[in-house]
Amino acid sequence: MMCSKLKKNKLFIMIGLLYIGLLLVNPGKALEAFNNSIYYLKEMFIILPVIFLLTVAIEALIPKSVIIKSFGKNSGLKGNFLAFLLGSLSAGPIYAAFPIGKTLLSKGASISNIVIILSSWAVIKVPMLANEAKFLGVDFMLIRWLLTVVAILLMAYITAFILKKKELQAHNDNDENTNSLMIKQEYCIGCGLCVRMLPEMYKMKEGKAVVAVTSMEEESVEEIHKTVQKCPVGAIQYTSKIEQN
């Protein structure tokens, strides 16, 4: 039990040990690092709730077909343009883009377009371009912007080429050759609608719905899809073998 907890929190333990080591070697730098960490944690607590609400809205309100058409593998140059636009017009620090990128990826966005969104979010946001032109000149900004766009496109397509044969499903460990049914606990509001519709497939646990079975028959697909469509917050995710292939 203790070993399991240590493994899950090994990153925090390592950071804590580094702080302790720095405190012993250089207390002044340790205090400065600690104050900077507190500042960024406060910023994250302000920004991340808004970002998580946005990801819930994307999950619940935007159909998967729209994401695939706009940002999917076959969206072409239009998808690249929309990815650049989304990243460039977005506000907030880069870590705010990761939950959105994960959500878009799980709904069918291509790896290359996710790379474009993250990269443009980080380095070519519109407010930053305006400040760059003000302090360094329009010519500098335009040349730097063009070279950055070329670099982002190259990085996006190289990344997609390298990862195209690998399973990249944001923290989804389900086997590709089996039916996949899951309820995203961070979105579930515990309304119990899915349990009432299909009690042999779902159950309530600690105020939230969970999947009650480990294997699913193909005959249940239609009923499962009904629960997916009726879930008010889009917390149920189902992919069959046929859909995956």
Rank of each mutant, 00 (worst) to 15 (best):
Y19H: 11
Y19W: 08
I20D: 00
G21A: 11
G21F: 09
L22H: 00
L22I: 13
L23R: 10
L23H: 04
L24D: 02
L24P: 01
L24S: 01
V25R: 09
V25G: 02
V25W: 14
N26W: 06
N26D: 13
P27W: 15
P27N: 11
P27F: 11
G28K: 14
G28T: 15
G28D: 09
G28V: 12
K29S: 12
K29C: 03
K29I: 06
K29P: 00
A30I: 03
A30P: 01
A30T: 10
A30G: 02
E32T: 12
E32S: 12
E32I: 14
A33C: 11
A33P: 01
A33T: 13
A33E: 11
A33Q: 11
F34G: 03
N35W: 07
N36F: 13
N36V: 10
N36A: 15
S37N: 08
I38A: 09
I38W: 10
Y39S: 06
Y39T: 05
Y39W: 09
Y40N: 14
L41K: 03
K42V: 08
K42D: 07
K42S: 10
K42A: 04
E43W: 01
E43S: 04
E43K: 15
E43T: 04
E43G: 04
E43A: 11
M44V: 10
M44P: 00
M44F: 14
M44E: 13
F45Y: 02
F45A: 06
I46F: 11
I46H: 11
I46C: 09
I47M: 10
I47E: 05
I47V: 15
I47Y: 10
L48S: 04
L48Q: 12
P49M: 07
V50D: 04
F52G: 02
F52Y: 14
F52W: 13
L53M: 14
L53F: 13
L54P: 01
L54D: 05
L54R: 05
T55R: 07
T55N: 04
T55F: 02
T55E: 13
T55K: 05
V56A: 13
V56W: 04
A57F: 15
A57D: 10
A57I: 15
I58S: 07
E59V: 02
A60K: 15
L61P: 00
L61N: 04
L61D: 04
I62F: 03
P63W: 06
P63S: 08
P63G: 03
P63H: 14
K64I: 03
K64Y: 00
K64V: 00
K64C: 01
K64A: 05
S65Y: 01
S65K: 14
V66D: 00
I67P: 02
I67R: 03
I67M: 01
K69T: 15
F71G: 03
F71Y: 13
G72H: 06
G72F: 05
K73T: 12
K73R: 14
K73N: 08
G76D: 03
L77M: 08
L77Q: 09
L77E: 02
K78A: 08
K78F: 11
K78S: 10
K78D: 06
N80T: 12
N80P: 00
N80V: 12
N80R: 09
F81T: 07
F81R: 05
